[in-house]
């Protein structure tokens, strides 16, 4: 019996009958992935302009990126903001998720949804709102203001991940720890936290990426010496198009996929 005639899964459907599905899935995969990966060859082009496929190869646009203070500064800003956002959003999001999960009830459900709104509301609205408010209190163009705004976006992500981890966690473990003589806070740190570790690390990395990839709020709130990389890319695209953008995009793809791969490996080990 050839592969074609074998059942594709625990059904009567054979691979031959599934061929259309495989083709469709392949097309969809390409449509999803190509816009992302097309910048990679473009970034190694020798040409002044974005072109595909490149006629000549070179690393000049990577050199351009690393030798332009504007780009380097923006990169440093982005890393700073993303790291700070991660450091603020992760503990706050974790505390919010834990508190609301443990207390339960209608009130905490409402609070949960309130904290989720930044995920539902168009980001442009948040950007305009914070721009207006921060303008009044002098936080526009400051790292602090940018971190605050990005934290608002990242906290829901942290909360979703930590809450879903708590759903499979047995809170009786904390009760047992207390009955065995541990204070509640110690029970949280010694019993609950180690078991949420992987989810919290995941949440932290996603908070980092949320800030690092964010464009709209950054356009409104960052400028001058505190421009983020995404804001700088956006401005550059408007003024002149050269393959530096492709080089930076390639590096950003590398960073994102690198982090996600790292998570997968970590997760594989965590699950044992």
């Amino acid at each position: 019996m050839s592969w074609w005639q074998k059942a594709a899964s625990e059904t009567q459907v054979t691979h031959r009958q599934r061929v259309w599905l495989y083709i469709l899935a392949t097309i969809i995969m390409f449509l999803l992935v190509i816009p992302t990966v097309i910048v990679i060859p473009m970034s190694f082009s020798e040409s002044q302009y974005l072109e595909f496929p490149p006629r000549e190869w070179s690393l000049r646009w990577y050199q351009e990126y690393l030798n332009t203070p504007r780009w380097v500064n923006a990169t440093i800003t982005s890393f700073k903001v993303a790291t700070l956002t991660m450091l603020v959003a992760t503990p706050f999001g974790t505390m919010a998720a834990y508190g609301l999960f443990v207390s339960g009830g209608r009130m905490s459900k409402m609070l949960f949804f309130t904290l989720m709104t930044p995920m539902i509301v168009p980001v442009i609205l948040i950007a305009i709102g914070t721009f207006y408010v921060f303008g009044r209190i002098g936080l526009v163009n400051s790292i602090f203001g940018l971190v605050m705004a990005h934290t608002v976006l990242s906290v829901p992500i942290v909360m979703i991940i930590v809450t879903s981890a708590l759903r499979t966690y047995d809170l009786n473990q904390e009760r047992v720890a207390q009955s065995l003589g541990s204070t509640r806070i110690r029970a949280f740190f010694e019993i609950t936290l180690p078991q949420l570790k992987f989810s919290i690390v995941t949440a932290a990395l996603l908070a980092f990426l949320t800030s690092f990839d964010e464009v709209i709020i950054s356009i409104f709130l960052s400028g001058g010496g505190n421009s983020t990389l995404t804001k700088q890319m956006f401005s550059a695209l408007r003024d002149y198009i050269d393959p530096t953008i492709a080089a930076i995009s390639t590096l950003m793809i590398l960073l994102s996929t690198g982090l996600m791969l790292g998570l997968q490996i970590l997760g594989g080990r965590g699950a044992r």
């Binding site: 047995d170 009786n172 473990q173 009760r175 065995l180 003589g181 204070t183």
Partner: peptide, 29 residues
Amino acid sequence: PPHKRGVGMVFQNYALFPHMSVFENVAFP
């Protein structure tokens, strides 16, 4: 508060600490 009562407690679903070995679980108190 519960941690000052000094009662031993066993729950329905055991509530063992999965990130600790048997020895560490029993040694916890």
